[in-house]
Structure formats: structure tokens, C-alpha cells
Design a protein around this nucleic acid. Sequence first.
DNA 1: GCCAACGTTGGC
DNA 2: GCCAACGTTGGC
Length: 156
Amino acid sequence: MKIAAWVLKSEPDAFSIDDLMRLTQRTTLWDGVRNYQARNYLCAMKIGDRAFFYHSACAKPAIVGEARVVKEALADPTQFDPESKYFDAKSTQEKPRWFAPKVKFVKKYAVGLTRPVLDQTPVRTSQLFTHTRLSVVPLSAEHVRAIDALLKDGSN
DNA sequence: GCCAACGTTGGC
DNA sequence: GCCAACGTTGGC
């Protein structure tokens, strides 16, 4: 599958799209990911790539907006910080295990694209729903077209 | 709060 | 290298 865009999942209680909007430069390092497949996807992200922001583990799981990759992944600093909950004793500066790209807020949707809505489109076949535990997921061009179609005729 | 799915760890 | 135990995620 040719990757056309990404989905970044976050629990809004921990870090929501509103939190991203409030940050200086509306930019953040997407750190703390500790899953190898997700890590590989983070490393594959290129500057300019589109990344949909998904709220998970909450009352209304949904794609709530989008961001854009502004810096390709570099060693995730939290893995070296013993104070961080993402500290990894097996990581070294020479051989980091975990990487984090930088993403910037692009927009928040007036109406989020909820699970039941996405389930009625080809997006249901994406790893967002077939590999529910993955927190970074690639989307195909078909998936992106389906999302754009929803955005066009909705209140967004 | 429950439960299913699944990734990770560690003993052998 | 297998597999059981365990921890975490995420939808409901």
C-alpha cells in the first residue's frame, strides 16, 4: 500500500487537539510512543505529510482534526530521562530505540468524524480499526479520499 | 468498570 | 524459540 497520510491517536484526557492548538507554534514532538510498529511508522513520516488527529479511549472516539509533519523523527528525548514515564533503561544515546517526529496543528474540525461514520466508508479497512492498538497508522489514498468526501459535505 | 485483543516479558 | 503470565489499550 502506498501511504497517503497518517493517523495519530491520542487520548484527549492526556493530550487533545485543543492542547495542540494551545502550544507555542502549535507544534509538538510526538513523543512517548513505545510500540515497534508505531515507531517504524513514525520514522517513515516525511515533512509535509498529512496526519489526522484521532481521539481514542474517550466518550466520542473520532478524527477531530489534522496536523502536518514539520520535522522528521529524531531520537525521542523522553527515553533518556529517568524522571519520565517513558524512560527506557535499554536505550542509549548511541543506540536510541524510540523516535519522535514534530507535528504542527493545521485545523480542528467543527464536527469530528466518529467511528460509526468512518465505519461506513473504506476507512473501516484501515489499521485504525483493524489494528486497534496501533497508535500511529498509515492511510491509503482511498482512505484519504473517503475522509475528504466526508469533510466536504459535512459541516466542516 | 468490564472485557476482549494483543504486545511484551521472562522462564524453561 | 515456545508459551504462559501479565500489562495495556480502547470500545462500549
